[in-house]
């Protein structure tokens, strides 16, 4: 059984707003996601796909640690901003919760290599005949790869970077790449709190489906309908048990059991398909609006959400 959980901090980044408050205000004002197409996909089977521009493109410039910023992919940047928002609100360390008693659980989407860097190294990796060449790659292409490529590509990095930035040292679990895996992060966090392994759980979800490669992969695999707009997003929830949580909102009626639920993202028409970020965005927004909710995941790729 999952324990009764309390949300003590929330961070939200969507295409409508760069905080929980601005996103909720935009939704209340009737704003909805708007998409644009990539010009370079014209003439391909993916020409009709569209993506949402970010609400505040410069939001990640506020990441304070410039040295660690160099290690960050866009997914990691979004995760770091969402986590900072949530932890600024919750302040578990300032309330005396020890770093090793704070757990970190995250769901992230498909790896999104930097496009400019990818083009640069690929351009240098072709032989005279225009075909990919091992020799050209090893002699020229490899030198054009960002030296921190591995950090930008490994799926555990967004969460590990957050652990370093925020000083989180406890139990952890990192999952990828679809919606249900972020729902699972929430479930693992709830059970770790229930077992008493930790006193506070930072649950993160971040995804960048607007990345051209991710967009095409989502469409190719059938996870993105032609009418849907892919949008980057991130969310972070700080969860605690009643004995440590300050007077705060209880996570009501949260059903944290996986079932054979069909894929269903009720926020897609409002903030776009945020894929791995969606489950936590749903919980955060429902909680902010005072809507008790039920979130279920399944053995496949989906999860479902319903107001109860």
């Amino acid at each position: 059984m999952c324990p009764e959980l309390f949300i003590t901090g929330t961070g939200v980044l969507t295409c409508l707003g760069s905080s929980l408050q601005t996103t909720v205000a935009a939704l209340a004002a009737g704003r909805r996601v708007e998409g644009k197409s990539y010009s370079f996909l014209a003439g391909t089977p993916y020409a009709a796909l569209s993506v949402a521009p970010p609400a505040e493109p410069g939001i990640t410039a506020h990441i304070r640690d410039k040295r660690i910023h160099k290690f960050m992919s866009r997914q990691a940047e979004l995760a770091a901003v969402a986590a900072r928002q949530a932890l600024a609100q919750s302040s578990p360390l300032a309330r005396g919760i020890r770093p090793e008693r704070i757990g970190l659980y995250a769901g992230v989407g498909l790896t999104a290599m930097d496009m400019d860097g990818s083009v640069s190294f690929l351009r240098k990796s072709f032989g005279e005949d225009g075909a990919f060449s091992h020799n050209a790659f090893t002699q020229k292409g490899l030198r054009a790869i960002h030296p921190l490529w591995s950090f930008h590509s490994l799926a555990n990095m967004p969460a590990c970077i957050v652990s370093v930035l925020e000083g989180i040292k406890g139990d952890n679990g990192l999952y990828t790449p679809w919606e249900d895996q972020s729902a699972f992060a929430l479930i693992e966090a709830a059970h770790a709190l229930g077992r008493g392994d930790i006193d506070c759980a930072v649950v993160l979800a971040s995804d960048t489906p607007s990345h051209p490669a991710s967009l095409v992969e989502l469409a190719r695999a059938g996870y993105l309908a032609p009418t849907e707009i892919a949008a980057d997003g991130a969310a972070c929830l700080v969860l605690e048990r009643s004995e440590t949580a300050p007077p705060s909102r209880r996570l009501k009626n949260m059903d944290l059991v996986f079932t054979g639920a069909p894929l269903h993202d009720p926020l897609a028409s409002f903030i776009g398909r945020t894929v791995a970020a969606a489950p936590l965005l749903l919980v955060a927004l429902a909680d902010a609006c005072g809507v008790p909710c039920r979130l279920t995941g399944c053995g496949g790729h989906g999860f479902s959400f319903e107001a109860v």
Partner: peptide, 13 residues
Amino acid sequence: EEALLRRLIATYR
């Protein structure tokens, strides 16, 4: 550049 990006996307597929 745009054709290269299309090729890159094809590779990513």
